[in-house]
Amino acid sequence: MQARTELSAQGCLGERTNMTTETALANNNINKPIISESLKTTITKTFKTLLIPFAGILVFLMIWAGAASKIDTSLGKFPGPSAVWEQMGSLYEEHSAERVKEQAFYERQEKRIEARLAKDPDYVPKIRAYTGKETFPDQIFTSLITVLSGFVLAAVIAIPLGIAIGLNKTLNAAVNPVIQIFKPVSPLAWLPLVTMVVSAVYISPDPLVAKSFLNSMITVTLCCLWPMVINTSVGVSSIEKDLVNVSRVLRLPALKHVQKIVLPASIPMIFTGMRLSLGVAWMVLIAAEMLAQNPGLGKFVWDEFQNGSSNSLARIMVAVIVIGFIGFLLDRTMLQLQRFVSWDKAGTAS
């Protein structure tokens, strides 16, 4: 039965798409000489999918360049596209130079260990990690890992919780006020509390992950938690009666019921919640990194702001663009995932 629903839903969507294209074509055909239909479709398509966005970006760049040259800050002119491009190159060069230094660092370390072993044979050598600065690509990587791990942790907590709430009206009534109150709180407000708790609780002589990483990650988790819980519970509680009845008739045990009926039926809503929260989490993470000086793109932005050199603004602009681009990619990835697992294709229009 479920398979049928899925099929029909797909069918429906397919028809709708065809119809829109046809209408568009029909409109285009009015008062125009007839060329090859297919060529025309291709042109229109290319025009719409490539040229228009390209033109949009071009106009944006022009406005940016024009406006930038008119804004004088105490750190020089506001960076235009060319200055930002230049800094992108220099950030990459710094990254390469740092890798060379890293290589030399390990070579020196090896020699030092050998020398010490010759004198002190009991010494148990341990290779120490590179101590140099984190380059821009390193910071990007740190932020990405942080956001993803916080996100996964949130999903691990929120989805089971959401299912439980969705299935049980009493539990829902009990938990709902708490969720409603915590939902609108910016995770940044939690940050000081998180920091203090982590530094009090997480004590280990040889920690697996840094405290700063844990702080950022928990902030991301707190941010992702509520939208995921709410969406999951709504998804679960609004399963079609028919499906629930089928489960009753078949007398499925509780776990089987969740596995075979609840999860597949509420997956679209769960993924909507996940996609929503990932977007917010990415924004919040940058702010949290700036505030708590935890490694990542946020810290990069803040450090550059504090440096106040003549390149600082352009470098911050590079970070802004990269943050936007990564946010976009994260959203697209979630969208693809959502499309892949959703049967009803609702809410996946863009």
Binding site: K133, E134, E304, N307, G308, S309
Partner: peptide, 13 residues
């Protein structure tokens, strides 16, 4: 010192 990971201000400053 003018490297961005230390003071990071311009060399001249």
């Amino acid at each position: 010192l003018s490297q961005s990971n230390y003071v990071g201000a311009d060399y001249d400053v």
